[in-house]
């Protein structure tokens, strides 16, 4: 019988999610002033650097939720709940870091705007389908998990 809890998978998942949602973005933000500092106006630079206050809490949230999701086995309510939460945290991370898909800035007398919120909708769809996956997975594996965990319980797999 498969184990109900997976501490090893939790660590791997935490690292796998920390890299794109915390480590790489923070590394990029810390490197940015050295690379583009002379070319960017101070107000734009400070605005970009202020993203750290969004990336850190939401990124750490994604990492913790990812670890908790991987910690629970398939068919456990914890996995479904934390998995859905992880996906919503990813959605929030992308929404706030990319300012909802609308970026406008003034640079050396030129005003620029980039509206890619429609493109982000595709990403949101992917993230929400990921959340749906955990919900569907819970119902698909719930009965199997209960039959394995409580073989003598004749209510196992029944509606709760």
């Amino acid at each position: 019988m498969e184990s109900r809890y997976h501490p090893g998978r939790a660590v791997v998942s935490a690292i796998a999610n920390a890299i794109p949602f915390v480590i790489l973005p923070i590394f990029a933000l810390r490197t940015l002033p050295n690379l583009l500092g002379p070319f960017l106006p101070p107000e734009v630079l400070s605005e970009v650097l202020s993203l750290e206050s969004i990336i850190l809490p939401l990124g750490i949230g994604v990492t913790i939720l990812a670890a908790l999701t991987a910690f629970f086995g398939k068919g456990l309510a914890g996995r479904a709940a934390f998995g859905t939460g992880r996906q919503l945290a990813k959605l929030a991370w992308v929404y706030f870091v990319f300012t909802g898909g609308l970026i406008s800035l003034s640079l050396l007398g030129v005003s620029l705007f980039l509206d890619f919120h429609l493109l982000l909708y595709i990403f949101y769809a992917a993230v929400l389908l990921g959340a749906l996956y955990f919900v569907v997975e819970y119902f698909v594996y719930r009965r199997a998990y209960r039959m394995a965990a409580y073989p003598t319980d004749h209510y196992a797999g029944g509606p709760t």
Binding site: A126, L129, G130, L132, V140
Partner: peptide, 19 residues
């Protein structure tokens, strides 16, 4: 034990990865 509903799970997974 046979797990029912894996097809639905696969469809959701493929749709998510496709998006």
């Amino acid at each position: 034990m046979q797990v029912k509903g894996r097809g639905a799970l696969l469809i959701v997974r493929i749709a998510g990865i496709g998006a």
